[in-house]
Amino acid sequence: MAQLDNIIHQTVRLQIMSALVALDPGEQVDFVYMRKILNLTDGNLGAHLTKLENAGYVKIEKTFIARKPRTFVNATGKGRDAFDEHIAALKKIIEGSKK
């Protein structure tokens, strides 16, 4: 039975996972663009990404492009599965209240 995920359910982390799962598996989003998409500060986004990374839900890659440091993030398979289960649980709550 689908269960709500305490880590994903937090508002900012939910939006982060939503954005990452919207990409194809393997595609990575730039940290700066993610900050703009979600309208967050560097610190706020960084802290939540760390929590998701510690749970194994996202992977953070630091690299250089045109000699500038860049950080890219993608959802792991475990993260996608956990997100899907969380969404299923949310839908079940809504469907359950309609009966």
Binding site: Q15, A22, I94
Partner: peptide, 14 residues
């Protein structure tokens, strides 16, 4: 419901 709307909004913006 609010959570699902946030999910949709973030996915759309991405």
């Amino acid at each position: 419901q609010g959570s699902l709307e946030q999910v949709q909004s973030a996915a759309d913006r991405t």
